[in-house]
């Protein structure tokens, strides 16, 4: 298995890209053969990505969630692939790959541009605070990755809802390879995805702020006027607004929820990835503004 130590980003990106391309063949004909080939590519990519993350973790001596922004994005993509493979195995007709694989590809492509250098706050090592910082950082990164994962699921569910809604409004018969769940179920799942994700994001933000305050005296300082933090705060406020509306409204129109979720999640994805890329040092001007 030594070849797994040589896995790079391109290996699993290519696997998922092929799986995504093959997912389109379900529109022509969905049979056991093309389904098996799609799953083989999906699983191959998943194994390669797991190996890559483990290799990276070994190199930095940090868990993948903590080692760098690059790895954090890849963990998020890894979670999405896990969901994709699980759902594909239990429901052969649900075209989840057509919606979730592009998100995965964007996450992996973004990780390419994001800094792979170890996080200085976690790598900082005055021994008495090291464990405390690491534990808080782990909690912060985990909550954020699950919160963002939930938002990505809500994003995919919203797209499915809108496609299904459009089909029904246009009175088109169902397609064999595109069997979506019914609107009622999609709306319920979507609502719950948002309701679960937003508290996770909130807790993630809170632990992040706590971590910043704690490390202020013990390590590299964290600037609360950092644009990354500011935009993250705006995104969080937006999601909290959506959450409050969902909880407060007795019977919110499902299509409106779907559109709102879609736009909110799209905004989250774009800002999250955009900021990570910008903060990764691609644009020196942005870096100088940060500092």
């Amino acid at each position: 298995m030594s070849f797994l130590t040589h896995v790079n980003l391109f290996c699993f990106f290519a696997s998922f890209a092929v799986a995504f391309g093959l997912e389109w063949t379900r529109l022509v004909k969905l049979n056991t053969l093309n389904r098996a080939i799609i799953l083989v590519f999906g699983c191959a990519g998943f194994v390669a990505q797991t190996a890559y993350l483990l290799n990276r973790s070994g190199q930095t001596n940090l868990p993948p969630l903590l080692s760098s922004n690059h790895d954090w994005l890849l963990v998020l993509a890894w979670l999405c692939i896990l969901i994709y493979l699980f759902v594909s195995c239990i429901d052969r007709n649900l075209p989840i790959g057509l919606f979730i694989l592009p998100v995965v590809l964007v996450l992996i492509a973004s990780a390419w541009f994001v800094s792979a250098a170890p996080n200085p706050r976690v790598a900082f090592d005055p021994s008495e605070v090291k464990n405390v910082v690491r534990n808080w950082a782990m909690l912060h990164a985990t909550l954020l990755v699950f919160g963002n994962g939930g938002m990505l699921v809500a994003f995919v569910l919203s797209m499915m809802y809108l496609v299904q809604h459009r089909r029904l409004k246009h009175k088109q018969p169902g397609h064999e390879g595109l069997a979506f769940p019914n609107l009622e179920r999609l709306a319920r799942w979507n609502r719950w995805s948002v309701i679960i994700s937003v508290p996770l994001l909130t807790l993630g933000m809170a632990t992040g702020v706590g971590l910043a305050l704690y490390t202020r005296d013990n390590g590299p300082t964290l600037n609360l006027s950092d644009p990354v933090i500011l935009v993250d705060g705006v995104v969080w406020l937006l999601m909290v607004g959506l959450f409050a509306w969902l909880v407060k409204t007795e019977r919110p129109p499902a299509r409106q929820i779907a559109w709102l979720t879609l736009w909110s999640c799209a905004f989250v994805i774009v800002t999250m990835i955009g900021l990570q890329v910008l903060a990764g040092g691609v644009h020196p001007a942005f870096e100088s503004w940060r500092s």
Partner: peptide, 8 residues
């Protein structure tokens, strides 16, 4: 084909 695509 249609009612079942709307209601759970």
């Amino acid at each position: 084909d249609f009612a079942r695509s709307i209601f759970d």
